[in-house]
Design a protein around this nucleic acid. Sequence first.
DNA 1: TGCATGCGTCTTTAGACAGCATGTC
DNA 2: CTAAAGACGCATGCA
Length: 680
Amino acid sequence: MRVRELPLSSSVVDHFADRGVRELYPPQRAAVEAGVCGGADVVAAVPTASGKTFVAQLALLTADGPGLYVCPLRALAREKYETFAALPGVDVGISTGDFDATGEELAGNDVVVATSEKVDSAIRNGASWVDELACVVVDEVHLLGAKRRGPTLEVTLATLRRRNPDLQTVALSATVDNPDAIADWLDAALVESDWRPVELRTGVAVGGDVAFDDGTSLSVDVASGGETDPDGDDGGGADRGGDTDAEVDTDTRGGTDAEDDEPDATEVTAALVADAVADGGQCLAFVRSRREAVDLAERLADEGLAETLGIEDAADAAADEATDVDGTLTGRQLADCLRAGVAFHHAGLRSGHRSVVESAFRDRDVACICATPTLAAGVNVPARRVVVRDQRRYGEAGMEWIPTLEVHQMCGRAGRPGLDPHGEAVLVADADTRAAVRERYVEGEPEAVESQLADPGALRTHVLAAIATGFAATETEILDVFEGTFYARETGAGGLADAVAVAVDDLVAAGMVARETGGVEDYRLVATAVGETTSKQYVRPETGERIVAGLRAAAGLSDATTLTAFEVICDTPDMQDTYLGNAERADIYRFARTNSAHLTTDMTEPDDFEGWLESVKTARILDEWIGGATVEELVERYRIGPGDLDSRVERAEWLLSAAEALGETIGVRVPAVSRARSRL
DNA sequence: TGCATGCGTCTTTAGACAGCATGTC
DNA sequence: CTAAAGACGCATGCA
């Protein structure tokens, strides 16, 4: 099937032809056959980079009215905005938290690109444009299963569809175990495919030997340990290295092939990266933590990868760009790495640094990025080879296997269409974990997507929203709103009844919702003024409650300062917490005691003392920030990443504005809040 | 006495969405 | 319920 056979204008056909898009990929053809161009609801569960964006464009271009493209990341929204804006004759708008665009402007667009939270917020604030949509495309729908953000996505989609029954819904998902459940939910046709434009082979490396799933294999020379041992890996190594007591305890290996001096995973990773780069390919290496990403990059900087690729000048230029961002330790480390043709990437980086790394990699000015999972689901950075060094990560239950879906997304970054003959994903393991790794990630299916709507916190938030927007005034009507939800389709809306009742009780107790008796046995649920502001400001009910209490307490303080304002908003579930190390604890405790006259919390009282101390730490950082401290100072003093500082400042702005709005609705004015906000 | 080495213990650990009105160059 | 790597600190050992 060819692009020009599709119901598209000739200028659009030309636009695609200019980019070499003339023929449809098989999954795209399947989507067309399922009716994406004819207004049909379609769920496409296909691998990354198999042309999902084109499917989205087809739906949006052929829809009979304005379209909405929903995606999970602001960076992704910007990326899509640009590709849509390049289409001839299409007016595109973008709406994310960090990008200003008023509702008025959005109403005039053919396509609006937005994050799911922003759409939710627009609905809560009564934006008119959401009712005029003819088509909604949801990217990465499998995020439905995400703990905190999943419920927002499903409630938003359900609300959009409920208010506009003619809305065409197109959902794009990574390969998951139950795409049929998602399709069932949306009454949509399912397009399922594992086709990729570039072949992907996945293998497990033990030592320097990689066995791929297509039967091929690869051997690389691993500089074992750190010492001299340059002779290859050709069997027969007489074991010397010190005391040899290894033979006795292990009975599992009868053969001679298991070596006792297994090279460590980092060396294997370095060898795999060097091998790919020597062949002219770029690499991504995924590791477990931020520090290990930096360490690995610094280790790879010794490999001379920039010289291998012949990109020294461009690498220098990228390094200079990184230096221009700030004078942070992180920035200097990054610049040094970039000069050697490598980089690291994690959420502790400021956005400036991140984009330097991403664009340098796309321009082939960096040979390898060492990354935490940020890069797995983020913007488009395909590489020839992906090395997943760590498959386990510290989590709630100690060391946990990383979900298969996530590892598949990392692996899916391998293979640049038109540039690489094929993509290679290599999972680094050892003799003990080889079988488990292969079973779980090479042969294993990704997890099923499960609704998280039953989570009490999520339910409280969305119950409040349903009441505050006036969509529901009784528990029955609330259940009606949730009826169109993934959870309801999977479990039955009745399963929510008890939980909704609890949520309503909680909200009443919190002063967000009131029961207005209307008849003998009937009452109506209405949002209080505070509840309404809370919902419109898009903060969680618990946050609204804490802020209201904090404002009242602050008003009673004889000397409320900006620190007071920061303490209130930081002691809120909408502010991310800041790690409080043992060494700092005493210092922060002392700080809290010295400043107790400016704090709204009685130090002897809080039940979560540790959590509160963390809030005080965050508040202190923010207060020093508005006091003129530099990023460099704060980063060093409080051991947080430069990017972490930025994101806390950003959240503080948002929460302070919510605090101001709440103060206005309860008639409590705390000048310190406004002062803090304007100084941010 | 000074420095290197080794061993036990302590510390730390991924990511990232959201509001809004008004003024200014 | 299942960790692992690096930093740190102390003791020992050797020149």
